[in-house]
């Protein structure tokens, strides 16, 4: 199956063409706030490297979040449009799983601004609990109470260097654990904040 993997949830842009669990082409670059300008060229380039035609695409795997709201909507718009015009199946995974890859007990944190993070524990590619919002203090507490966990993502928020796991492992593990989307129209990003919070 010819699969396109897209992640635009965080400050990276990740695009890959994957077939039978083999990554044929991959673009993984820092693209803070410029994913929307770069994503189509990246997809086009990956397809050319993989020697695919757009019409051969059979499936899209995307991260539904958590991450920047504008960011998560980029990959999702592409997937929704493709699934609307062609028999392309859509699968979702989370940005936390992409970062954790197949590692054991890895707590991934992504900057959610205002001294908060989107976080979640990932174990061998599966999200142990739901992704949710943590304060920096809560993360620091988790780090103390769970010395056996690894921490990954925007670790500068807790005074350490940012840590990214292996991206190829992240992509392949995410694809393996991705969930199929039955109703493409009902698919929405994982925001973790409701519409009502914008009322004020």
């Amino acid at each position: 199956m010819k699969q396109l993997f897209i992640d635009t949830a965080h400050r990276h842009l990740t695009v890959a063409c994957v077939e039978n669990e083999v990554i044929l082409s991959l673009i993984h670059q820092e693209a803070f706030k410029s994913q929307s300008e770069k994503v189509m060229d990246a997809i086009d380039e990956c397809f050319k490297k993989a020697m695919w035609q757009p019409r051969q695409l059979q499936s899209v795997v995307l991260t539904e979040g958590p991450g920047s709201y504008t960011g998560v909507r980029i990959a999702m718009t592409i997937a929704k449009v493709l699934a609307s015009v062609a028999p392309i199946s859509i699968y979702t995974t989370t940005s936390l799983q992409l970062i954790a890859g197949s590692n054991k007990n890895t707590f991934v944190m992504i900057d959610a601004r205002s001294a908060r993070v989107y976080g979640g524990l990932v174990d061998e590619g599966r999200l142990v609990d739901e992704a949710s919002i943590y304060t920096i203090e809560q993360v620091e507490q988790l780090k103390e109470t769970h010395p056996q966990w690894q921490f990954a993502g925007d670790l500068h928020l807790i005074g350490e260097s940012d840590r990214w796991m292996d991206i190829e492992d992240g992509i392949l593990t995410s694809i393996k654990n991705a969930r199929i989307v039955d109703d493409i129209d009902a698919l929405i990003p994982l925001y973790l904040k409701s519409n009502q919070e914008y009322q004020l």
């Binding site: 929307s36 994503v39 189509m40 997809i43 086009d44 757009p54 019409r55 695409l57 709201y69 504008t70 909507r73 980029i74 718009t77 592409i78 929704k80 449009v81 493709l82 015009v85 062609a86």
Partner: peptide, 19 residues
């Protein structure tokens, strides 16, 4: 800007897919 983004990306996706 956030609203425009959706339409721009949808257009780019169609333009790419159908060349």
């Amino acid at each position: 800007i956030g609203s425009l983004h959706i339409g721009v990306l949808a257009s780019k996706t169609l333009a790419w897919y159908y060349q």
